[in-house]
Design a protein around this nucleic acid. Structure first.
Length: 789
DNA sequence: GGACACAAACTTTTT
DNA sequence: GTTTGTGTCC
């Protein structure tokens, strides 16, 4: 059975007892080794599948593993327990939660629900919500939970005024969760650990059953998850963890790489196995990846190798701006699919942040390339889906006030904010749930008649749905909600195109419910809700059959594609600006880049833009520092020779040329640069200003010459003012000392450099080459134009 | 109470 | 460039 494996993989598959640590490099056949390992355990070693627990990071990975094991050993695979940490914990808590005071019909709160709850807690605690945003507080609470700190622990460990506030909100927040009979994502882990720690009988029962524990992606584990695994495997100590510290990219979410690196020390007699043969990529791709990752310190030493052959040089493309970058990507894809027999599905475009998909999408559309955005704003994040989910959650658990608030006036039924806050007061004074308050308010309260009726009507609709649900199928409940709530009717009546789409989306959810009924062992509303809460779009994406995949680098982990584009290779984007101040975060960015590179089988195209629009306004961009670590001999540097080349805005031009020379693999491209610049200056002269002399290079020695106007008025003071309130400066004639070569910045066009000065008109004008937006002629004292530094 | 218009604030990455 | 919050009007 194990003949299909290489020596290391076989060793991994055969080592069953005791602690095992497998370092599995990218593309090293990890899943193969793991599935064979489990198959070997069941078939050769006679271990019952129900004694095996396999924990993964995503549902998709869990399903894939199950499927592949099924192929090896057949239906016995159904008996093994494979799932994500969150789904496993959720199941444990449904089964045993009552032992620690958690009712089995708890609902799972997502981020939006959490934030809503924190907002309430903040408003009750009378905290300045401007300085302490709910999101920041949610973040802090979540980090606390990842470390298994309860509100008291958190208060004790506080360092600084922010933590003080967080500690207060945290304890209120937990109380509110209890009142709503709800758990948030992190609670699933925290409460599961609490259960195992405080109920020895439950723990013993689980240990009896789960004798072999296997954890995938161990580098992404956080403290709570670590503790959980430790508890479950404490008796038999048959714990096998698999991971790659070089691919640890979830530190920001509490994952602790240290836990994989210290596994050996924690578990005496650990067998360490390294899978270093790569079956995915070409040698050149691996060379580049290694050159990038070796810069990091504190990593377990390992190096991937392959028998796949050298392959082609990787490409670094310099784009003018993000639009041109996207057009380049789409152009390469279109050309190759036309000429070289590749399919759209062979391509993936990876980016650092979701917001960057926009340009790529429009470029793809323009060229008629089918594409699919994976992750990001997902199906389950859409407003109408969340509305419907809120109905279902409320019907399932009448205590859920967050869901109630969300849908009490959706569609509009004349229950506004005022009414809701009165209901809240009533709930408080009577000591009942918000839902009960709806009933009381209908009977006697100071509400107006119309409101009373509306509230009472809402109450009885929900109550009846709640009662009827017991005897209905899940899809039946979904349909009943859509009908009885008037939600679909309202959308159809609005007549807007968007609303028609929403009706379709809701239809998809009905389909989803039907599918769920067919596939689940014991379909229930609770089970469906759990799916809704814990399933992400990534798990859904299976049918990428015929389109280019667009996704974040994070979302690409675990996937592979013949040809990969990595866009936005610029300082501030990748590495991301918010990580640049911290060396640990920078190391994580580097690992992220490593992950991106190692997704590719045959070819990688990296691109950076000289200019890019970042929330609204344009910026000049410097190529990512990571590009400099790539081995020149494995890289081809390209750019569009026809595009106008602007002098670089940052640093001196010499350095820019040198950098480019390096990127070009040692070829001196100074000449190309010079010619391109002359072309652009000539073009500028032709377009804008026939009489102007050609633009001068922005050498460091060029001293800005003050214009006539500039001499008349010292500009220093006005410039400062202009910086503060540019709009008001229109009349103040803030004439600036602009000469050829002066670096300027414009509110709308971003950074640029003065190419020529025209003083013939009533007011002096300048021609400016903008990094991102090209050449423009502007009045020298235009309020939106400022001198850089 | 609800619809609309405008300003401001801000964006990593996600089970 | 987008979402979220605020203010005005009906």
């Amino acid at each position: 059975m194990l003949d299909d494996l290489n020596d290391r993989q076989r060793e991994a598959a055969e080592t069953i007892d005791g602690p095992v640590l497998i370092f599995a490099g990218a593309g090293s056949g990890k899943t193969r080794a793991l599935t064979y390992r489990i198959a070997h355990m069941v078939r050769e070693k006679g271990i019952a599948p129900e004694h095996i627990l396999a924990v993964t990071f995503t549902n998709k990975a869990a399903n894939e593993m199950k499927e592949r094991i099924t192929r090896l050993i057949g239906d016995d695979a159904r008996r093994l327990w494979a799932g994500t940490f969150h789904s496993i914990c959720s199941r444990l808590l449904r089964r045993y939660g009552e032992e620690i005071g958690i009712a089995p019909n708890f609902v799972i709160y997502d981020e939006a629900d959490q934030t809503a709850l924190i907002k309430q807690a903040v408003s009750i605690a009378d905290i300045d919500s401007q300085a302490y945003t709910p999101t920041r507080i949610r973040w802090a609470i979540s980090s606390g939970k990842n470390e298994l700190l309860d509100p008291q622990d958190y208060a004790r460990a506080r360092k600084g005024p922010f933590d003080e506030i967080v500690a207060r909100v945290y304890s209120r927040y937990q109380q509110a969760l209890r009142e709503n009979n709800a758990l948030d994502f992190d609670d699933l882990l925290v409460k599961a650990v609490e259960l195992l720690r405080s109920r020895p009988k439950v723990l013993a029962a689980l240990q009896e059953r789960l004798r072999y524990v296997l954890v995938d992606e161990y580098q992404d584990i956080n403290y709570a998850q670590y503790e959980l695994v430790k508890l479950l495997s404490a008796r038999e100590r048959n714990i096998c963890v698999v991971g790659d510290d070089d691919q640890s990219i979830y530190g920001w979410r509490g994952a602790n790489v240290g836990l994989i690196l210290s596994f050996q020390a924690d578990n005496p007699n650990t067998r360490v196995i390294k899978l270093e043969q790569n079956y995915r990529s070409t040698q050149k791709i691996l060379d580049c990846a290694h050159a990038v990752i070796r810069v990091n310190e504190d990593r377990a030493e390992k190096r991937l190798w392959t028998e796949n052959g050298a392959g082609d040089n990787l490409v670094v493309y310099e784009a003018v701006n993000e639009e041109e970058e996207a057009a380049y990507v789409a152009g390469v894809v279109a050309r190759q699919v036309r000429n070289s027999g590749t399919r759209y599905a062979d391509y993936a475009v990876l980016y650092r942040a979701n917001a960057m998909s926009r340009n790529l999408e429009s470029a793809m559309r323009e060229k008629g390339i089918p594409y699919e955005v994976v992750g990001g704003m997902s199906f389950y994040d859409r407003g109408e889906i969340k509305d419907l989910a809120a109905y279902l959650k409320l019907i399932y658990n009448l205590d859920d006030s967050i869901s109630l608030r969300r849908i009490i006036n959706k569609p509009a039924r004349n229950i506004g904010e005022g009414t809701v806050s009165r209901l809240t007061q009533l709930a408080h004074s009577e000591g009942v749930t918000l839902f009960e308050a709806c009933r009381l308010a209908g009977e006697e309260s100071d509400l107006r008649k119309a409101q009373k009726e509306a509230v009472l009507h809402f109450y009885s609709m929900i109550r009846r749905l709640h009662e009827d649900a017991a005897a209905m199928s899940v899809s039946g409940i979904v349909k009943a909600v859509l009908e009885r709530s008037g939600y679909t009717d309202a959308l159809q009546a609005s007549g807007k195109a968007d609303d028609a789409d929403r009706v379709d989306t809701l239809g998809e959810l009905v389909t989803d419910a039907v599918k769920y009924e067919q596939s689940a062992d014991e379909p229930s509303l609770g089970g469906f809700l759990e799916r809704l809460a814990l399933l992400s779009d990534l798990d859904k994406a299976e049918d990428l059959g015929s389109s280019v995949s667009l996704m974040t680098v994070h979302a690409s982990k675990g996937l592979e594609f013949p040809i990969v584009f990595i866009v936005g290779m610029e300082e501030g984007i990748f590495p991301h600006e918010r990580s640049m101040g911290d060396q640990f975060e920078l190391a994580e960015e580097r690992r992220l880049f490593y992950v991106a590179l190692t997704r590719a089988q045959r070819m990688v195209y990296m691109s950076h833009a000289r200019g890019r629009t970042i929330y609204g306004s344009p910026h000049g961009m410097i190529p990512s520092r990571f590009l400099k670590d790539l081995p020149p001999e494995s890289i081809d540097c390209k750019f569009d020779a026809d595009s106008p080349l602007m002098p670089r805005m940052f640093g001196d031009e010499e350095a820019a040329v040198r950098e480019r020379t390096v990127l070009a693999g040692g070829i001196d491209i100074t000449d190309v640069l010079r010619r391109a610049r002359e072309n652009s200056a000539a073009a500028a002269a032709q377009r804008q200003e026939p009489q102007t002399p050609p633009a001068q290079p922005s050498g460091g020695e060029t001293v800005p010459e003050p214009t006539e106007a500039g001499k008349r008025k010292p500009a220093g003071a006005t410039r400062k003012k202009a910086a503060r309130s540019p709009a008001k400066q229109k009349k103040a004639a803030s004439v600036q000392p602009l000469g050829t070569g002066t670096k300027v910045v414009h509110e709308d066009f971003g950074e640029g450099i003065v190419v020529s000065v025209d003083e013939k008109g009533d007011e002096p004008a300048v021609t400016v080459a903008f990094v991102a937006k090209g050449i423009k002629k502007i009045l020298a004292n235009h309020p939106k134009l400022k001198v850089r530094r």
